[in-house]
Amino acid sequence: MQFFGSSEISPSPPVPTASGNNAHMMYVFNRNGVCLLYREWNRPLRTLDSNQDHKLMFGLLFSLKSLTAKMDPSSGDKGNLGVPQLPGQGCSFHSFRTNTYKLSFMESPSGIKIILVTHPKASDLRESLKYIYNLYVEYVVKNPLYTPGTPIKSELFNTTLDQYVRGLG
């Protein structure tokens, strides 16, 4: 598990690989599974109401994490399947791809999960997620009016995020 550099935002964000907005939506969860932020840019299909959708997404990530931790071929003893793991413990995953979308996932040491859903041909977005995490630290965590564990309502964070994600490949 890596920690993310200094507290300052790196002066130049990772270079976007292509122009155009390919991002569909983004989720931020805290370690208790509370959805702190949900942004949507392009989502023609909606099968569930938003609360159910967030729960399903968190459940999918939780289960996929325990699946990868158990399947990890590099170590012998991996504990039991389904036992909750601390952030950074066990083998995790960073993305999966279907024929219609690609989901990139990052978990910080404090258990903040950032999920970005993009076009399936999007490149490796690990650096971009780290940059978004830095944005979160700068605009949300350092905001004295923000209570940890509550939904994010920072206008500044939203506009900066929109701007950055629009430029992503």
Binding site: L64, T68, P73, C91, H94
Partner: peptide, 13 residues
């Protein structure tokens, strides 16, 4: 028209 996960990229596999 989604047909499920085709590729899952984990840290070690």
């Amino acid at each position: 028209g989604c047909s499920g996960i085709e590729l899952l990229e984990a840290d070690t596999f």
